[in-house]
């Protein structure tokens, strides 16, 4: 891969993601104030003192945005990766073995999908202790139903190709067929889905925080910050738009990079459309 062949849009996307990660990793160093420190009046406008102004309790918005990146990125990323791991494994097993295993997994998946995600999450999270890993696990399992749907559809298409049959004829086991024959060919649509699901995970996390079941205050997260400052909109205070904009920008950046990866993998190594 040559650096020159990367289009400018991908550079912008990667820069955006890198910025978010740097903010998350070095939050204590970068943030001008503490995460929970009240440093001024409520909803102060932008100025040299507070670059992005202050929030509904008088905390520095920029500092909270930087600290919020930590929670938001970590939870959304962990939940997305976990949901893909679960979804891909189960869906590929279903697609390769077919028969009763496929029926069982697919109907179970339908059952999960038929319950509205948010209500499901509310019930489960209200019943379980409020721990970060439980939150991540619940988000991941709920999201994995969507990944399962897509993964199974893609894998069924690939599983009927001659090269998969050739592998079966050779006597290869299911693990080899799933991870070495099918997965590399299913990567393009799954990567695209990953970009989308990551963005949704950020939004879902903020919804949960809004309802009081996600990240608990005073810990900062972008979705929670939108909620905290949303009342300000009525008074013409734009504080809620800043974390909202950060969520949007991150989602766009992730999708730009995924788009480019998709194009690259399909054009170089002979994807079905290249």
């Amino acid at each position: 891969m040559r650096l020159r062949s990367i289009p400018p849009s991908a550079w912008i996307g990667m820069a955006g993601i890198a910025l978010a990660f740097v903010a998350a990793l070095f939050a204590p160093v970068l943030a001008p104030y503490g995460e929970r420190e009240i440093v001024g009046a409520v909803w102060e406008p932008m100025g040299p003192e507070h670059w992005l102004g202050t929030d509904n309790l008088g905390r520095d918005l920029l500092s909270r945005l930087i600290f919020g990146a930590q929670t938001t990125l970590f939870v959304a990323l962990a939940a997305s990766i976990l949901s893909f791991a679960i979804g891909i494994c189960l869906s590929f097993v279903a697609a390769v073995t077919r028969g009763i295993v496929d029926q069982g997994l697919s109907r179970l998946n339908d059952l999960m999908m038929s319950i509205p995600t948010l209500i499901f999450a509310l019930v489960v999270l209200a019943a379980l202790p409020q721990k970060l890993w439980i939150l991540i696990l619940v988000m991941a399992i709920l999201d994995s139903t969507r990944v399962f749907r897509l993964g199974r559809a893609v894998a069924v298409d690939i599983a009927v190709m001659d090269f998969v049959e050739a592998a079966r004829l050779r006597g290869e086991g299911t693990i080899w067929i799933i991870f070495r024959e099918i997965l590399p060919n299913a990567l393009s649509p799954l990567l695209a889905e990953f970009g989308l699901r990551f963005a949704f995970a950020v939004l879902f996390l903020s919804t949960l925080s809004f309802l009081g079941l996600g990240i608990q205050p005073p810990q900062a997260d972008w979705g929670g910050m939108v909620k905290d400052n949303s009342d300000g909109i009525i008074f013409g205070v734009p504080a809620a738009l800043i974390p909202g904009g950060a969520i949007a920008a991150l989602a766009v950046c992730v999708n730009i990079v995924v788009d480019w990866l998709l194009h690259r993998t399909s054009s170089l190594k002979g994807g079905r459309d290249g």
């Binding site: 190709m161 050739a166 590399p184 060919n185 190594k269």
Partner: peptide, 8 residues
């Protein structure tokens, strides 16, 4: 075309 894995 379909008998060999395009990603290998």
């Amino acid at each position: 075309d379909t008998a060999v894995n395009p990603r290998h």
